Computed example of a mutant assay.
Amino acid sequence: MRARLLLALSVVLLASGCQRSALLWANRGLPAADASIVYAPASGLSLDLYRPRSGGAGPLPVVVFFYGGGWSSGRREDYRFVGRRLAEAGILAVVADYRTWPASGFPGFVEDGAQAVAWARANAAAHGGDPARLFVAGHSAGAQIAALLGTDPRYLHAHGLQPRTLAGVIGLSGPYDFDVTGGLVPIFGAPAQWPDAQALNFVDGDEPPFLLLHGDADRRVEARDSRLLAERVQATGGSASLLLLEGAGHTAPLVALYDPAREPRVLDAIRRFTDANSARAGLSGQRQAHPDPARKGVEAGE
Rank of each mutant, 00 (worst) to 15 (best):
Val203Pro: 07
Glu231Gly: 02
His214Val: 02
Ala279Ser: 13
Leu200Tyr: 06
Pro209Glu: 10
Arg272Gly: 12
Glu246His: 01
Leu212Thr: 01
Ser284His: 12
Trp194Cys: 13
Arg227Ile: 01
Glu231Leu: 05
Arg287Trp: 10
Leu283Ala: 11
Pro208Tyr: 14
Glu263Thr: 15
Arg219Ile: 15
Glu222Thr: 15
Arg265His: 02
Arg227Gly: 01
Glu263Tyr: 05
Ala199Val: 08
Gly215Asp: 01
Asp177Asn: 11
Pro209Cys: 09
His250Asn: 04
Pro208Arg: 07
Leu283Tyr: 08
Arg262Ile: 12
Ser284Met: 07
Ser226Asp: 06
Leu229Gln: 03
Gly249Trp: 01
Gly249Ala: 14
Thr251Met: 08
Tyr176Cys: 13
Ile187Cys: 08
Ala217Val: 12
Gln286Ser: 14
Ser278Ala: 13
Leu184His: 04
Glu246Thr: 09
Gln234Lys: 08
Arg219Asn: 14
Ser284Leu: 14
Glu231Ala: 12
Leu283Val: 05
Leu184Val: 06
Leu244Trp: 00
Asp218Gly: 04
Ala281Met: 08
Asn201Gly: 09
Leu229Thr: 04
Arg220His: 05
Glu246Pro: 06
Leu212Pro: 01
Leu244Ile: 11
Phe178Tyr: 13
Arg220Leu: 10
Arg272Asn: 10
Phe202Val: 10
Leu184Gln: 11
Asp268Cys: 04
Leu245Thr: 00
Pro195Trp: 04
Gln193Phe: 15
Gly238Asp: 04
Gly247Thr: 01
Asp275Leu: 15
Leu245Ile: 04
Asp218Glu: 05
Ala252Val: 05
Ala256Ile: 09
Leu228Glu: 10
Ala230His: 03
Ser239Val: 11
Arg224Glu: 13
Phe202Asp: 03
Gln193Tyr: 13
Ser226Thr: 06
Asp268Asn: 10
Ala235Ser: 11
Tyr258Lys: 12
Gly247Phe: 00
Asp177Thr: 03
Trp194Asp: 14
Thr251Val: 10
Gly282His: 11
Phe210Tyr: 15
Pro264Tyr: 05
Gly205Pro: 06
Asp206Gly: 09
Gln193Ser: 15
Trp194Met: 11
Leu212Phe: 05
Phe202Pro: 05
